[in-house]
């Protein structure tokens, strides 16, 4: 309500010409842009999946139909061979690239200095520190980190732009996160699902979330993205899926709608 009244008070006579005398006009430089797109991660008992669409946008323009958002971290060469951690970044793509390259370097250095690959939990903590170090000029990205933990179980960590992080079973990020996340709550963590006939009212027993098999998860990821493509203009072109298991990292692409 106050803002409405402020507006009233500030209302002055409108001139048809521009008011050049009313102070110097500043053209600021804004160091961020939003490149759209969406990412998603789900873990299972012995795997983790990170997925993202490959569209890059600025405003209503499609820059490119093939800009992957999921990267292998700490691999031995340009192809990422030998990596055991994957990272997805969505938001401001230039910051995403910079963040990915910094983390990649850190994980490589760790391997050279300690003679063993960095654990996913250690990498997760390090990524949080990297993000928080830029607390007052943040990397404008939503990052998701995935791999296998010490017990061989799928591990997934999600971040906000300034480094708050949490280990989760599943997470959607980016432009269509608000569309995908409630679908995941329902289909992965079985939120709002109850065991039929288990009782009335408070006696009703909630369906417990349990790790899903890989093929089911792949199907959910594809469903989530085909749904997001239908209703969000910044999502589309191709679906990149990176699956990490004890056998290694598999990367697959599926076509999505290009409209």
């Amino acid at each position: 309500m106050t803002s409405l009244m402020d507006h009233q008070a500030r209302e002055t006579v409108g001139y048809s010409f521009s008011e050049s005398t009313a102070g110097v006009k500043q053209h600021g430089f804004y160091p961020y842009t939003d490149n759209g797109g969406s990412t998603l991660g789900i873990t299972g008992s012995d795997f983790a999946i990170l997925a993202g669409d490959t569209r890059s946008t600025s405003g209503y323009n499609i820059n490119s139909r093939m800009v992957p958002k999921v990267f292998k971290i700490g691999g031995d060469d340009e192809t990422g061979e030998g990596a055991n951690i994957i990272l997805s970044v969505v938001g401001f793509a230039a910051d995403g690239t910079a963040l990915k390259e910094r983390l990649d370097t850190v994980v490589k250095m760790y391997k050279y200095q300690h003679g063993k690959p960095m654990s996913v939990s250690a990498c997760a903590q390090r990524l949080s520190t990297i993000l928080y170090q830029k607390r007052f000029f943040p990397y404008y990205v939503h990052a998701i980190l995935a791999g296998l933990d010490e017990e061989g179980k799928g591990a997934l960590y999600s971040y906000d732009p300034v480094g708050s992080y949490e280990r989760e079973q599943c997470r959607a990020a980016g432009a269509a996160a608000s569309l995908i996340m409630p679908f995941l709550d329902n289909q992965v963590n079985f939120k709002n699902q109850y065991i039929p006939g288990s009782g009335e009212g408070h006696a009703l027993v909630a369906k417990k979330p349990e790790p899903l098999p890989l093929e089911t998860v792949k199907g959910l990821v594809r469903d989530a993205f085909t749904s997001a493509v239908e209703r969000h203009i910044e999502v589309g072109d191709n679906l990149q899926m990176v699956i990490i298991t004890k056998a290694g990292i598999e990367e697959v692409y599926h076509p999505l709608k290009k409209d």
Partner: peptide
């Protein structure tokens, strides 16, 4: 490939 004042890059 393209690069702009913000450091954004893409290729097509």
């Amino acid at each position: 490939s393209s690069a702009d004042l913000l450091g954004t890059t893409f290729s097509a």
